[in-house]
Design a protein around this nucleic acid. Sequence first.
DNA 1: CTCCGAATAT
DNA 2: AATATTCGGA
Length: 434
Amino acid sequence: MAGIDKKDNQFPKGMHVLAVDDDRTCLVVLKAALQKCHYQVTTTNSAITALQLLREKKNKFDLVISDVHMPDMDGFKLLELVGLEMDLPVIMLSMNDDPRVMMKGIMHGARFYLTKPVKIEELKNIWQHVIRRNKLDPKNTGKAINNHENPDSGGGSGNELTTGGASDQSSKPSRKRKEQDEDEDHDNGNDNDSGEDPSAQKKPRVVWSLELHLKFVAAVEQLGIDKAVPEKILDLMNVEKLTRENVASHLQKYRLYLRTVNTITNQQHSNIGSSFSSGDTSSYLRMSPLTGIGQLQTLNNSGYGLRSFSPSNMIGRLNTPSGLHAHGFNYNDNQFQFPSSGLLGGAGGNNGQIFLYGRGLNSVQNFSTKFDPKQSFGRENHHHHQGGIYDNNPNSVGSSLPKNKSHSHLYLIIIIIIIVIVATKICGQMNATI
DNA sequence: CTCCGAATAT
DNA sequence: AATATTCGGA
């Protein structure tokens, strides 16, 4: 890039600006103003020409200032193309000061949004938008709009989420961390733009899909719950870009969940349950890892009966993708949810865990809804990195779409029936013991 | 100095 | 609510 040295605090007088506006008057004014600010200016009244210029001499320009409304090409389009093809900062310009339009520009990657008439004071400072280093993939400059991309798409990245082998432990001593790249401003204490910087990178959050969770649980199981510490779990899981912190966080929650669940079961198993659930209060550690799964198992199997009472094989079976696919669920990009083990969990039956979702029916419904593969909206995010750890579904959080009620209801009903049957059995047992 | 885990923040 | 980040302590 032309005359800019970001290390020195030197004012970038030589900065080369390409100004694009179909309105000649505006263009002339803009050019004059820019020149007054000691920028080097090239003008054009056509976005297409601008694009050509940019393509020809990618390195000649440092900054593009473009009007939004132009006959040959929408300013947004230009913005997008520039973002896609080269890594140049773009400042949008229009008379429209509608915040929504401005937001649109910013969200499409504009570094700043100016409104006409442009004040020269504003132009004086635009150089700052160039300085910000942008070492991330050029591709996300363009449309940061509805994709969460993971920070480095660099090498391999084939995290084997889709593979069922949760118990596989190709012991990899090296820890892999997801490097996060905060782009940081440096030594220019000048901050005049009150707006947000669009290039601010959102760091992706890990989404604990069912699959991830299963890996997690498997790892915990393998280690033994009391030996399961984040780092070891992380190793066993062997999932790229997952950090120890991620695991730690999840582990924290997991433990909390287990404790809750166990408290509940212990409360009610006064004399019934002694036969199973390792009664020992201090060792909620033993039965618990399974509880988390048990319910899922039940859900997944909903239609297929609940003979799956043996905790040990629950994991085994659940781990295989086929098991999960049984209903055609696309579990892959869905968030796993700890069943809400609300107050009225059932009296722990043969393996208490299944009953814990007394109130969890809600979550059940949620579950099936979310997991329905035919999900009406045609999600267009099958491209890039299947099996990612992160959430690439814009709709994912926040909206529990009531689609496909019938399905949900079906599952709900089935589950209720199962519960009733089991409850009956238990009552039978109770009576027998008494 | 590294890791864990509870507390706290987003 | 789910995940991230912080922070005191081993």
